[in-house]
Design a protein around this nucleic acid. Structure first.
Lengths: 135, 135
DNA sequence: TTCATCTGTAATAAAAAATATTACAGTAAA
DNA sequence: TTTACTGTAATATTTTTTATTACAGATGAA
């Protein structure tokens, strides 16, 4: 679980509390305390995953593309993740060793299992619930 | 979940299959395909956590310090991890923003919850079971 | 006793990954 | 036609991870 998830969750929390008002990348970046271009990059990804809508030009900005009750933390994580939650085996063990030969496969099985468990838990939490904590 | 866990699991799997024979850091590193000094460093940590015994000097090497059935994957992960499984919030958000002010705390709560779930699952798997897969 | 073979550990270097910065083209409102 | 935005690429910097080198200390055996 990397910093992207935290940034994504922060962005979406801000948007969920913005009541249809568009937020700019400058405002968002200011709340997270990161560079606006980096915020836009993350937003761009979330937009590609159908979570955020954007409007260009003057008075442009960002908004949620669906109600926060319909966005789960699993959706957010899925949008952000490139790998199973826990990574995947990436050593290149010795193929002449009975253990080395197949350990990556066995580790990946465990990781896939844990991944499933985690995503199930995240699936039970909505952005609306998370967002409510800030009232 | 980082590469350390994979290395630790690999080391312990080798030892659990060594039947009291001591394995050298050279042999272990050769199976994992990493530098022997790095293997020794990992082993040193596992030894500090009571999982491995070592013998110095000629014909020295490493062995498990208890039966593999008494070592869970959670024990291994605990020995290796420095943080909650999923990391922890590390941005420095704007404290003047109602969201920024408390988001780290709320993220950490979620991470702690997921952490607990993961460790419970890992606690149900023993090194012996993992090791058996290589027969 | 002294040589060979190990571990233990620190210091350093290199590689990889994450994050930040700069820059500027494109779009839309006023 | 100026101003205030987004979109995106290129680049730089920082941080983290991993690898390497080096050598002191321990132990067994010739």
């Amino acid at each position: 679980m990397n910093g992207q998830f935290q940034i994504a969750l922060h962005i979406l929390t801000l948007l969920s509390r913005a009541n249809d008002e568009l937020l700019s990348s400058d405002y968002i970046a200011g709340s997270i305390n990161i560079n606006p271009a980096l915020a836009r990059k993350e937003i761009s990804n979330l937009r590609n995953h159908g979570l955020i809508s954007s409007k260009e030009g003057k008075n442009g900005g960002y908004s949620l593309s669906k109600p926060s009750g319909q966005i789960s933390l699993a959706d957010i994580y899925q949008a952000v993740k490139t790998q199973p939650v826990l990574g995947s085996a990436k050593n290149m063990p010795n193929p002449d060793c009975p253990v080395g030969k197949q350990i990556n496969k066995n580790i990946d099985l465990i990781y896939a299992d844990l991944d499933k468990t985690l995503l199930e838990k995240l699936g039970n939490m909505s952005l609306a619930d998370f967002s409510k904590q800030f009232d």
